[in-house]
Amino acid sequence: MSTILSINNLTKVYSSNFKALNNINLQIHRGEIFALLGPNGAGKTTLINIICGIVNPTEGEVLVDGYNIIKDFRKTRSLIGLVPQELVAEAFETVWHTVNFSRGLFGKATDHAYIEKVIKQLSLWDKKDNKMMTLSGGMKRRVMIAKALSHKPKVLFLDEPTAGVDVSLRQDMWKQVRDLQKSGVTIILTTHYIEEAEEMADRIGVINKGEIIVTESKNELMKKLGRKQLILDLRSSLSSIPASLSKWALELNNDKLIYTYDTAKEEFCIPELLASIASAGITFKDIHTKQSSLEEIFIKLVKTS
């Protein structure tokens, strides 16, 4: 898979001497949805702002489709669309004018047919003559997306796109993001909703204290760092775990027998465990498994970094 965004040894130190980014190296693949996770103040927005040209880098290099963001800024910026965290469009402008303005600002000739298509895709057509200040938060968020798409970018940054958006609208937006990916747009999103990353992302990067601490495909990450639990609901309570089962590091919790194992390691063997339990004369009425969520993995990563 080819690289559309290449970040090499990127460092940002603000004038207050705060080091927001420390030697970031990151490659984003063409056509993927990449979720950048991190706690508040981790450096997510600084990273996006540098790539988009809003903040100056201190050191390092960023290439968008092979073009340098400083030397070839016209080329790189025309390839990028940005939906910022804050809803900041001009309050007195209509939806139609503000989206057309964005297209012109990005150096593209007027194309009403395309803007109409984008606005319709985002279910904004009936609001096109409404002033921005009359729209709800969710609608404003859609307008921000329409503005970002107005010049047909190849890379779209969504900085917390569903913050403050209700559940049904969030799912609508997830669908729209997937449709964009299908149309060939590479999407980089930051989010506080881990379920959003779990639902949408092909790959996940975790940033903390200005450093990328992991970059992995979502499935690999969950496989590598995730833990599974096998839970047996016992027919009768046990006072203690029999000595014959000591090699399995089982936990006894009321009438549940719990076995926690690491999916990345191969030493576990469930059939053997079940056979040992049966040999020990323990019977159970139900069996189920639980896998650690991305949220648990994220918290674990941030705490240990």
Partner: peptide, 15 residues
């Protein structure tokens, strides 16, 4: 635009 935060669009445009 500086006051509203909309300056981001100007700074991120190929201009």
């Amino acid at each position: 635009p500086r006051f509203t935060g909309n300056i981001y669009e100007l700074l991120s445009a190929p201009i």
